[in-house]
């Protein structure tokens, strides 16, 4: 339990939320939320020091390059930006990262991944979307595959995943497919989040909240 203090520095950050509140809504302890605030401060000040993570800052952290366009990074950024105002606020950052916590139920991770892959937000992953994502992945890697091979990969995946054969993958088909291929959501778990206070020990110096655990 914390005593609910926030530093002046923290209160001056737009969209800052009380670590006690964020902790109560997520698998993070109050100390971990405070450690995440240290990470958030670093990310949100890398280009524009305004206490908000802009897309360029997100790209810089992921790719060491603020101009690197990437379909999947765009999708992740947009899903974190719950208010859809073009920036990630601290509360959005913590709540979104909680999906990636090792203790978060697989069901939540599966649903989150589905929303990421449902590019046009139709409630289904369509063949064109899957092909677009495969092409985007090839574009960012050194892998070169002919259009024929890409078509075969997409076709084979649809044969396996689209169990009712209606040409699109619905949330239940996705759930079943992930159950058979659990490695598909491996990237939805960040072991770092279990040790976030160790990764950012500087929070201890700034912390005004005492954890009982």
């Amino acid at each position: 339990m914390g005593c609910g203090h926030s530093s002046k520095r923290a209160r001056s950050v737009p969209g800052y939320e009380d670590p006690n509140t964020l902790s109560s809504e997520t698998p993070f302890t109050v100390s971990e939320v405070e450690a995440l605030f240290e990470l958030f401060k670093k990310l949100s000040s890398s280009i524009i020091d305004d206490g908000l993570i802009h897309k360029e800052e997100f790209q810089l952290a992921l790719f060491r390059n603020s101009n690197r366009k990437n379909l999947f990074a765009d999708r992740v950024f947009d899903s974190f930006d719950v208010k859809r105002n073009g920036v990630i606020e601290f509360g959005e950052f913590v709540r979104s990262l909680s999906i990636f916590h090792p203790n978060t139920p697989a069901e939540d991770k599966i649903a989150f991944a589905f929303r990421l892959y449902d590019l046009r937000q139709t409630g289904f992953i369509e063949r064109e979307e899957l092909k677009e994502m495969v092409l985007a992945l090839l574009n960012e890697s050194d892998l070169v595959l002919s259009d024929d091979v890409v078509e075969q990969i997409v076709h084979k995946t649809f044969v396996d995943a689209d169990s009712n054969g209606d040409g699109k993958i619905d949330p239940n088909e996705w759930k079943d497919f992930v159950a058979k291929n659990p490695s598909l959501i491996k990237n939805m778990t960040l072991p770092y989040l279990k040790d976030i206070t160790l990764a950012f020990p500087s929070f201890v110096l700034n912390s005004e909240v005492e954890d009982s655990d």
């Binding site: 990470l39 999947f72 960040l190």
Partner: peptide, 25 residues
């Protein structure tokens, strides 16, 4: 040769989905 690669498996290796980079110091 039959294609056995899973499209979602391929996609899941995108650097854009690898958020561990956010934690790099």
């Amino acid at each position: 040769r039959p294609v056995t690669m899973n499209a979602f498996e391929l996609i899941s290796h995108s650097q854009g989905l690898n958020l561990s980079n956010l934690f790099d110091k």
